[in-house]
Design a protein around this nucleic acid. Structure first.
Length: 334
DNA sequence: ACTAGCCCCTGGGAGC
DNA sequence: TGCTCCCAGGGGCTAG
């Protein structure tokens, strides 16, 4: 599932590949009457406006805010004599939720493809050789396709359709409900021990794992990285935030920065369906110490004063905490 | 103002 | 082989 490192990997890819290009057209097969999706491209009426507003615009920049991707556009061109678009420049806000990812490449319509056989309304497959990584089944659930001015496409692939794509006014994007209640980004240099303490004060009585995944407290951390951070910090996921000692907070801060950076260095976590914009897997899943390691021996080791390597005698346990599965060591996480 | 719990969605895996 | 059932979970929403 895309968390900060996965969204950052995608954002970096987009900055490199699509900044400066124009959006010529957009297609979707999403069509819902679900009220909760009325302000997204999944809503038919909304999609019409969306298409009109973004067609012909230029992609100015791409940024990440927590787990959201923001694609900032130029003002849409208007025929002479017609007033400019209300609200000025637009920003496409994308949240990948559980199974979403973005793909950049060449696509062509193929009605007999895998996705179509599964009942999709339409389907696009990559215009690549058969052994292309883009033929990975997880890259076939394509629901929105942007046609770009270099004849390539930006596709939104989302197996479970939890993802969200909506259009905002660039000027006020950060003040909308989507973005105005998000805590500081832990990878910012200014995010230090003081910041961490201040943020945790917001939820004094909460379990650390739950609080850590709360986007209004800290931005970008989800189930995988919270498990890994707490494993490395030696802190039990159910510890109340107000019982954490100074040295534990220091460890949590250090582990957070280290693991999020490690996630980015490995190109994200593809244990499930995350793929980068070229359709390729990241490798962080090969370095899990806790997440989905239930029943395995704890891999933590330390070097004793005599120079011997001592292994933790714990086993990784799984427990549902506030409706989310938590994985932690039975021994060293206290 | 809080929080627990439901819901969205669908492929994959287990069990029969 | 093929059916049913359950699981994964971010975050919006609602009921308490």
């Amino acid at each position: 599932m895309p968390e900060l490192p996965e969204v950052e990997t995608t954002t970096r890819g987009l900055k490199k590949e699509i900044a400066g290009l124009k959006i010529l057209d957009v297609w979707t097969d999403l069509n819902t009457k679900d009220k909760r999706k009325h302000d997204t491209v999944a809503d038919v009426k909304y999609f019409k406006t969306f298409k009109k507003e973004i067609s012909g615009t230029k992609i100015i920049s791409v940024e990440r805010k927590a787990k959201n991707i923001l694609i900032n556009l130029s003002t849409p061109p208007r025929p002479t004599g017609t007033p400019p678009s209300k609200g000025g420049d637009k920003t496409i806000l994308i949240h990948l939720k559980m199974t979403g990812h973005l793909l950049y490449g060449k696509y062509k319509f193929n009605p007999s493809s895998y996705h179509h056989r599964k009942g999709g309304a339409g389907s696009w497959i990559p215009d690549e050789k058969a052994n292309s990584p883009l033929h990975d089944p997880y890259n076939r659930f394509i629901h929105v396709v942007f046609t770009l001015s270099n004849k390539k496409h930006l596709a939104f692939c989302d197996m479970r359709k939890f993802g969200k794509m909506t259009l905002l006014d660039t000027k006020t994007a950060h003040d909308t409900k989507h973005l105005n209640n998000i805590g500081p980004d832990p990878l910012e240099k200014s995010f230090n021990l003081r910041t961490l303490k201040e943020r945790l004060l917001k939820k004094l009585n909460g379990k650390i794992k739950t609080v850590f995944m709360d986007q209004s407290v800290i931005a970008g951390i989800g189930n995988i990285y919270s498990d890994e951070i707490l494993w490395r910090s030696g802190v039990h996921p159910e510890r109340k935030t107000n019982t954490l000692k100074e040295n534990e907070l220091k460890l949590i801060l250090k582990s957070t920065k280290e693991l999020l950076n490690k996630g980015i260095d490995f190109g994200g976590d593809s244990m499930s369906d995350y793929r980068n914009i070229y359709g390729l897997r990241g490798e962080f899943q090969l370095h899990h110490e806790a997440y989905r390691c239930t029943g395995e021996k704890c891999r933590r080791s330390r070097v004793s004063p005599r120079g011997r390597k001592k292994y933790c005698k714990g086993v990784i346990l799984r427990k549902i905490i506030n409706g989310r599965s938590a994985h932690y060591c039975s021994n060293h996480q206290k």
